[in-house]
Design a protein around this nucleic acid. Structure first.
Length: 350
DNA sequence: AAATCGACCAACCGCTCACAG
DNA sequence: CCTGTGAGCGGTTGGTCGATT
């Protein structure tokens, strides 16, 4: 069956917008607003365009204060950091960058940022290989197995790229506003990841000053606000994810906490097998295709609790461990959007 | 000068979700 | 509840342009 088309495709113009069309759309919206109905809007203005097309044109191009191109280093860092944490949720990322559209960020990521980071990563690998006297090998996966002791502990997980310390999580001149906004965002999003996501926040240690609230405490405080509308919370407990290794992990986390209070995602990841798995999927791009095709990553997963997914081509689905992802999806289906953020639960807070 | 290639980006497509009836 | 509809989102496509051969 399929759903009815949103407009009469045969009577709708496609392709690039003319200056005339832009002017019509812009002046109408500036005077009357969208009227809450994009579908009806083109007819009102006399444009032979699909309502969706008008919406996109307005949001991505005509809207006031839109910035195009010229991404700053700071913006790069924010995008990278958020991508690592939340994946390809461009609208969420765009919301943290005033004047940027999700489409812009998506394009920027796919065409430049990803390659830029990959290039840095490769250079870094080469430099390190030279330093260690490792013979250059076509297959990077073999290098990953010999590089250093940390790698030997977790041979299936490469070191985090050296570029990541540029992220706002480092103490290398990040602006506090970045950290703050990211932290707030992650706290909000934290509910989507249950307590495992909390580990990421703790691992990231978003530069909380000594004596200030830890991220856990902040989350607890946030929870007070969230929990107040109780209706949605009932389902949350039922959807709490339990990981086989949770307890040992938690002990490990407590013991090792000071070791990754310093900062980088990389350190966090290399310090902890669980986090490595958690972030590994989203970091696939840093390591290149060789590794993925080598099935090294798949092997790691097969022997661990995330064995459900060995298809490392599907990066976006691996941003979160499969259990979390599937669990979250389930919750998300059941819960109103505004309630999703309430899925803040962490046994440590009980 | 022409052909080819790759990077970039605007726009489209199809899906999910929220909401009204 | 169920259904239909519009909004919003992320993935993908296709056109343009500059660099290279």
């Amino acid at each position: 069956m399929g759903r009815a088309p949103c407009c009469d495709k045969s009577n709708v113009k496609k392709g690039p917008w003319s200056p005339d069309e832009d002017a019509k759309l812009k002046s109408y919206i500036e005077q009357h607003g969208t009227g809450g109905n994009w579908i009806a809007l083109p007819q009102k203005i006399g444009l032979k365009r699909c309502g969706k097309s008008c919406r996109l044109r307005w949001l991505n191009y005509l809207r006031p204060n839109i910035k195009h191109g010229g991404f700053s280093e700071e913006e790069d860092n924010i995008i990278c950091s958020l991508y690592v944490c939340i994946g390809s949720r461009w609208s969420v990322i765009a919301a943290q960058l005033p004047g940027r559209t999700d489409n812009d960020i998506k394009n920027y990521w796919n065409t430049r940022l990803k390659k830029k980071l990959l290039g840095k990563r490769r250079k870094e690998l080469q430099a390190r290989n030279k330093g260690n006297g490792v013979v250059e090998h076509e297959n990077n996966s073999s290098l990953l197995l010999q590089e250093n002791s940390a790698q030997q502990l977790h041979p299936c997980w490469p070191q985090i790229p050296a570029v990541l310390p540029l992220s706002p999580y480092t103490n290398q001149s990040p602006s506090f506003n970045d950290q703050d906004s990211i932290r707030k965002l992650l706290i909000k999003l934290g509910g989507r990841f249950s307590d495992d996501y909390q580990r990421i926040l703790d691992g990231l240690n978003l530069q909380f000053p000594h004596g200030s609230l830890s991220s856990t405490q902040l989350l607890q405080e946030e929870q007070v606000h969230f929990v107040s509308s109780a209706g949605c919370m009932n389902s949350i407990g039922n959807n709490q994810v339990q990981f086989g290794q949770s307890n040992e992990y938690r002990a490990e986390l407590v013991q090792g906490q000071s070791s990754f209070t310093t900062t980088t995602i990389g350190e966090m990841v290399s310090a902890n097998d669980y986090s490595q798995r958690l972030l590994g999927g989203s970091l696939e791009f840093f390591y290149g295709e060789e590794m993925i095709t080598d099935k090294i990553m798949g092997g790691a997963c097969a022997s661990s609790s995330c064995g459900q997914s060995t298809d490392w081509g599907e990066t976006s689905s691996l941003i979160y461990p499969p259990l979390v992802a599937s669990n979250y999806e389930g919750v998300r289906q059941e819960m109103p959007r505004e309630c999703v953020f309430q899925e803040l639960s962490y046994p440590g807070a009980q």
